[in-house]
Design a protein around this nucleic acid. Structure first.
Ligand SMILES: [Mn+2]
Ligand SMILES: [Mn+2]
Ligand SMILES: [Zn+2]
Ligand SMILES: [Zn+2]
Lengths: 139, 139
DNA sequence: TGTTGACTTAGACACTGTCTAATGTAGGGT
DNA sequence: ACCCTACATTAGACAGTGTCTAAGTCAACA
């Protein structure tokens, strides 16, 4: 996390209290918070931080490639600090739990050229949907 | 499309002018409109149709399995009448064009059981991202 | 320590989707 | 053909998510 702050300083970022707390909230594994969840956690650390600053900071972190945007449902985007390790997502339809997962094989290669319609492929997002053990048990 | 209307009548639906025009707008291949795009096209056919009715009708068609919801970006959901044929989507990052595509292999099998964390898998949504031939050419 | 341009803020605004109360009507019963 | 009435539609308020602006603030550097 302080690695992140060091990288940002090298890129000319002013290190404000607000940016520090956003970085702090995003520190960890399997973190997939919405912008408003990040704002709520940031407010607990720095009460006067505004929603606009959280949105601004997240947008900048995404542009810099330090955080990924994930849209697993049709609702709010989620912000994922795990950029080191290419991964996909497994989502519980019932409780919304999200896990990072690593499918086998080359996902891009799975799309035959006859199905590419002349597109240049840049990436692929996969969302596996199911029920987590807890929710399946409560059936 | 009249097949669709016949199925809906059998399920006890009242066939109103509004429902007919929504069905008509959704008739076709590679159709992936947002609710408001569907509303705009429906208004051209039946000027007094309301946004609420379009949303209501789409929600019912989804519940009945006659239309699929697709979330390819973090924006508005899109409605896909192509339910006969299981498929995934290829999206142009630049212009937003969407194509139906058919990846090879079993996508669910691509997630090893060691990566399932006890979840019961129900489905998988794949979005291939790239640039269409036109947009890549304009680079 | 003073200066300055980048940063933050509150709140307005836009887009997407849901809900309600009042009104309209499709389709079965007569 | 006409009535009923339960179901459908409507306008607009409201909620969630995200963007933008204008005014005030401050981190970094000299
Ligand atoms: Mn992740
Ligand atoms: Mn489709
Ligand atoms: Zn669950
Ligand atoms: Zn394109």
């Amino acid at each position: 996390m302080s690695d992140l702050l060091a990288r940002l300083r090298e890129r000319g970022w002013r290190l404000t209290a607000q940016r520090r707390v956003v970085a702090q909230v995003l520190d960890g594994e399997h973190v997939h918070y919405t912008a408003d969840e990040i704002h709520a956690r940031a407010v607990a650390l720095l009460p006067e931080i505004s929603r606009a600053t959280v949105y601004n900071t997240l947008g900048e972190l995404v542009s810099l490639g330090e955080v990924l945007e994930v849209s697993t449902d049709g609702r709010a985007k989620r912000y994922d600090p795990n950029t080191h390790d290419a991964h996909q997502h497994l989502v519980c339809e019932s409780c919304g739990a999200i896990r990072d997962v690593h499918p086998s094989g080359d996902l891009i290669a799975g799309l035959p050229s006859s199905e590419r319609f002349g597109f240049t492929l840049l990436g692929v997002d996969v969302t596996y949907r199911g029920l987590c053990a807890d929710c399946a048990g409560r059936a």
